[in-house]
Amino acid sequence: MRVEMKVNGVTRSAEVEDRTLLVHFIRDVLGLTGTNVGCDTSSCGACTVLVNGESVKSCTVLAAQVSGEEVTTIEGLAEPDGTLHPLQRAFQDNHALQCGYCTPGMVMASLSLINEHPNLDEKAVREGLEGNLCRCTGYHNIVKAVLAAQGEMGAKL
C-alpha cells in the first residue's frame, strides 16, 4: 500500500507492505536511523517519535496508521545549520547521555512531556519518562537536562 506522511516537515511517500511498522518505515525506508529499536515491545521507549506532536512508540504503530499525519523524529529538532534544539543542548550540557542509545527516545518523550505540562517538577519528569529506559542508568542527569530545558523552551516545537 502507499503511505504518505509529513516527516520533519517534508512530505514523504512510499509503497510499503501493510504490516510495516512505523519505526521500520522511518529507519529503513526513509533512512532516518536516529530513531532506535530497543526492546521492540513498547517497553523501553528507544523508538519514541512524535505523531502530531505527541509521543508514541513507533515499534507498536503501523506506518499505515500514521499515513496522512505529521511525524517528528530526532533528526527534525536541530536547526538546518546544525544549531541544537534547547532540549538537545540541555542533554549535552548536563551530560545526560552515556552510551546514547536511549537518547533519541528520551529527547522525543521529554519534548512531548514539556509541551503537555508547562511546569514540570522533578517527580513529574521522572513519572513522565517512566516509559523510557536508560540501561546505563543515567537518569539523574536526564532529569536535570529536562528541567533545564523547560526553562528555555518558551515556544512550542
Partner: peptide, 9 residues
Amino acid sequence: VGDPAVRHC
C-alpha cells in the same frame, strides 16, 4: 496505564 506514549495511543 502503561506510560505517556502508550496513553497517547
